[in-house]
Amino acid sequence: MEVIVISSDAPAAVKATAGTYVLVATGTNDGAVINAAIDLAAALQARNDTSPAGAAQLGTVRLTGGRFNITSPILMRSGVRLTGAGWLTELRAVNCTAAGMIMLASAGDHMVMVEKCG
């Protein structure tokens, strides 16, 4: 299962596809929207109780192309993969004063992946 975050500068027709697993960024505090998507994706691992012990069930958050203005850190949670559309996806730190723009949500979080596609 994948959660998609659409940038605020995407065409209106693309934004109209928003739903439970498709979120639209606001263009101001996009880190909050990305974090909400990560929270949705992290729960995917726990819901798959029919998997055998040790099965790797990763939730994926896919960012569309476009600019995402990050004012607070993106907090990665266990079992989540964050991916973009290669050079078409821009994460721009806007008044983000945290130690990093992408961080673990807690010291206990693990098995995260951040990658670009394309």
Rank of each mutant, 00 (worst) to 15 (best):
P73D: 03
V94G: 04
N29S: 13
G108R: 09
V24P: 07
S106W: 08
G27Y: 02
N95R: 14
H110K: 13
T26W: 02
T20R: 14
A105P: 01
G31M: 02
T71G: 08
S72D: 14
A25M: 04
H110A: 14
A55T: 15
M111V: 13
A56W: 09
E115H: 08
G59V: 10
G66Y: 01
G86M: 09
D39L: 09
I6H: 00
L63T: 07
A36V: 02
D39T: 15
A32R: 07
A55H: 10
I6F: 00
V14G: 03
G118A: 12
S51P: 00
L58E: 07
M113N: 12
A99T: 13
I74E: 01
A32T: 14
T50L: 13
G31W: 01
N69V: 06
S72K: 08
Q45D: 10
A99V: 08
G108V: 09
G27R: 03
G79T: 05
T64Y: 01
G65E: 04
D39A: 14
E2W: 01
A41V: 04
R77T: 00
A93L: 07
A98C: 09
A36S: 15
D49L: 11
D9I: 06
T89C: 05
P11D: 14
G108M: 04
V22A: 10
T71D: 12
G59L: 06
I102R: 08
I102W: 08
S7N: 04
G19I: 05
V24Y: 07
A107C: 03
T97A: 14
G84A: 03
A42P: 05
V33G: 05
Y21P: 00
R77F: 00
L63H: 04
A10C: 06
V14W: 00
A16K: 10
T97F: 11
T28L: 12
G65M: 01
M111P: 00
L82W: 01
V22H: 06
S7L: 03
A12R: 10
V94M: 03
M1E: 12
T17D: 07
T50V: 10
V112E: 10
K15G: 10
C117S: 15
L23Q: 09
